[in-house]
């Protein structure tokens, strides 16, 4: 049975790492509105991460706080799923990641918001309202790109193909949320149909994030994110 700490650290790490990834788009997005949207989604996720990691730190009771967990923890101790640490790629690949992840995150948070752990439920009830915007945003772009030009369609399709191998982990029988799969599949299928896109063919899944077995990408991400607190521990501004 997983503890509140286990749940909080996973939810917090998912949000933190994806928030950090998305913030890499800041100032680089294809247009201003997209730049604002991705930065806003990143901000929502970073806020959720702060709340979940603060709860994890409190549960742990070893004197660490959310910042210590975010900025002074080593890569092997991160418990995020692998999809959130994947590089942004092009805009379509970023949207593919967001589409697959946010749909899953919304279903998961909605379930946690109804669950009997009050501290987790309170954060989830707040976060799920924010994630609905992320789902809508990503889904609209999947349709726009999929139903757009040959170029945009090809890129959207490639983006989904690339991210699809990380889907299995979200529903893994051991550390995943297997019961959410039918609802998730129905959402994904409806949007892909509207976009005129094929469901990616099954591929060998890559697992391990929940156990701390990460892709090389996470280490690079943490190098950048943790640089300041590693170099000047406890620095404030």
């Amino acid at each position: 049975m997983d503890s509140v700490f286990d749940h909080a650290i996973r939810l917090g790490d998912d949000a933190l790492i994806l928030g950090q990834r998305l913030s890499e788009w800041c100032g680089h997005a294809p247009m201003l509105e997209v730049d604002l949207a991705l930065a806003n989604i990143a901000l929502d996720l970073t806020g959720q991460a702060t709340l979940f990691l603060a709860l994890a730190a409190e549960e742990e009771g070893r004197g660490r706080d959310a910042d210590a967990l975010a900025f002074r923890r080593d890569v092997l101790d991160f418990r995020n799923c692998l999809i959130v640490e994947q590089p942004n790629g092009d805009f379509a690949q970023t949207i593919a990641r967001q589409f697959l992840f946010s749909n899953w995150q919304e279903l998961l948070l909605a379930e946690i918001a109804e669950a009997p752990a009050p501290a987790l439920a309170a954060i989830a009830a707040k976060a799920v309202k924010e994630v609905r915007y992320h789902v809508r945003y990503a889904s609209e772009w999947v349709v726009r790109l999929g139903d757009g030009t040959q170029e945009s369609r090809g890129r959207m399709s490639d983006g989904l193909d690339w991210m699809w191998r990380f889907v299995e982990e979200l529903f893994d029988a051991v550390d995943g949320a297997a019961s959410l799969r039918p609802a998730w599949e129905a959402r994904i299928a409806a949007t892909l149909r509207a976009a005129g896109l094929e469901r990616p063919r099954p591929m060998r899944p890559i697992l391990g994030g929940r156990k701390g077995h990460h892709s090389e990408h996470l280490g690079h991400l943490l190098c950048e994110m943790q640089f300041l607190q590693r170099t000047y521990p406890g620095a404030t501004w």
């Binding site: 604002l36 949207a37 930065a39 806003n40 901000l43 929502d44 924010e130 915007y133 809508r136 945003y137």
Partner: peptide, 13 residues
């Protein structure tokens, strides 16, 4: 609607 994400988290453009 131009964008559901505006100048702050609480606003749309």
């Amino acid at each position: 609607l131009v964008s559901e994400f505006g100048s702050t988290p609480c606003k749309a453009l």
